[in-house]
Amino acid sequence: MSARNILSEWTMQPGTGKAIELLAGQILRIEQVEGLQCVDFNCFNLHDYKEFMHCGRTRTVHGFNPSKGTFMWSAPPRERAMLYILEDTVGRNDVLFPRCSAYVYESAYGFDAHTNCHDIQAEAQREYGLTPDDVHDSFNLFMCTEVTLDGRATITRQASKPGDHVDLLALVDVLAIPNVCGADVMRTSNFGLKPIKLTVFEATAADLNGVPKTPILRSQRTPKDFRQPMIKADRALVRDPSYVAAFVNVPLVVEEVSVVLDDGEAAMLDALRLPVYGTDDGSALRDVLFTWWEQRFLGAAEAGAPAISAPAPHPGNG
C-alpha cells in the first residue's frame, strides 16, 4: 500500500478540542499519546451545519460500539454516511453515553467549575460560528461501555496504549471536532487526563476502494426537498397561522386482503399465534408473515439498517 501524505498535525492538550475542516477523501487519525484517554467527537456537514453526525442513527445501524468497517451516519431526513471508520486498533468506542457537561460535575460531584466535553466542544465550534446549542451527542472514541441485563448503561475502564488510533475517512466535506474528554473523575479515561495527537492524511486509492457502497435512495432528502427550507433566525417558537397540514403519504391507503387457510395451515397459525392477538386471526397471520419476512429477507435491516455492499476486491489483496 502506498504511503499517505500528511496534510496537518496537532496535539490536543487536556481541556481543549480542535475544529478541523476535513474534506471528502481525507482521513483524520485520532491517536493516543500516553494511552487510556477518551475522545469525544462531533461532526457537521461543512456546507450545511444542520446536517450532523447522529449517534442514534449510527447506533441503530451498527450497534452500541461502532468500530472498523462501520459508518457514522447523519440524522433523518438526510440519513447518509458522513464518515467511514477505516482503522481502529482498539475496537472500543461508544454511541450510548452523551457528552459530559458542567451540570454533571456540579450535580454529581459538587464541582461548580470543571473541564467538560460540552463546554470544550462549544468553544472549539465557536471558531466556525456555532453556538453551545449546536453541540450534539458525541461519538466517544476509546470509551468502554456495557449494557447490564437490567438495561442500564455502564462505563468500564479502558486499556488503550500509546499509538492506538482510530482513522476516520470523510465521505463528504465535514467539520470534524474531536476533544480530550474532561472526565477525570470517572472510569472513562481511567481517572486521568492526557493529550491526544491528531493527524490529517490524504487518502490513498486503496483506502477509497476499501469503502463499502451505501445506497442512495429517494427518501434521503435535502433542503431543496423541504417545505420549509429556511433556518429560523429567531429563537421563540410561534405558530404559523397560515399552516395547513400536508403530511407525507397521507391519506394512508388500506387494502383488505382475503387469505383462505386449509386445516393444516390453520393449525400452523394456531401453533405460531402469539397470546396478544387472542382470536384475531388477521393480526396473528400478519405478525407471522412479517416476522418471517424480516428473518428471511431483511437481516440487519430489521432494525432499520440500510443495505451496505461489500467493496470490490482490490488488486493484490488475494
Rank of each mutant, 00 (worst) to 15 (best):
I6H: 03
L7V: 09
S8R: 13
T16K: 00
A24M: 00
I27M: 03
I30D: 00
V33K: 04
G35A: 10
F41T: 15
N45P: 00
L46M: 13
L46R: 14
H47V: 11
Y49G: 07
K50H: 13
M53F: 04
C55K: 11
C55M: 14
R59P: 07
R59A: 14
R59I: 12
G63T: 12
G63M: 07
N65E: 13
S67G: 12
S67Y: 04
G69P: 01
R78T: 12
R78H: 11
R80W: 03
M82G: 00
M82E: 03
T89G: 06
G91C: 06
S101C: 04
A102C: 01
V104L: 10
Y105C: 14
E106S: 09
S107Q: 15
A108N: 08
G110F: 01
F111Y: 13
A113V: 12
H114P: 01
H118D: 13
H118I: 12
D119V: 09
I120V: 05
Q121G: 03
Q121C: 07
E127W: 05
Y128L: 14
G129T: 10
L130D: 10
T131R: 15
T131H: 13
D133Q: 03
H136S: 11
D137M: 12
F139Q: 02
F139Y: 10
F142E: 12
C144Q: 14
E146W: 05
L149N: 12
L149S: 15
G151E: 05
G151S: 15
R152G: 00
R152H: 02
A153P: 06
I155F: 07
R157D: 02
G163I: 06
D164E: 02
H165S: 11
V166K: 00
D167I: 10
L168E: 07
D173H: 06
P178N: 08
P178D: 08
N179Y: 02
A183Y: 00
D184Y: 07
V185Y: 04
R187G: 01
T188I: 14
F191P: 04
I196Q: 09
V200G: 05
V200A: 15
A203S: 05
T204F: 00
A205K: 05
A206Q: 08
V211Y: 01
K213R: 08
I216Q: 15
I216H: 07
Q220F: 08
T222L: 13
R227F: 01
Q228P: 05
P229D: 03
K232Y: 06
A233M: 06
R235W: 09
A236K: 02
P241C: 07
S242R: 04
Y243G: 04
Y243E: 03
V248R: 12
N249Q: 12
P251H: 06
P251D: 13
V254Q: 10
D263G: 06
A267I: 11
L269K: 15
L269V: 15
A271D: 06
R273W: 02
L274A: 06
V276S: 00
G278W: 07
D281I: 14
G282D: 09
R286G: 02
D287I: 09
F290C: 03
W293R: 13
E294R: 11
Q295K: 12
G299C: 10
A300F: 10
A301R: 14
A301M: 12
A303M: 12
G304S: 10
P306K: 08
A307Y: 10
S309F: 03
P311Y: 03
P313L: 09
H314K: 05
G316I: 07
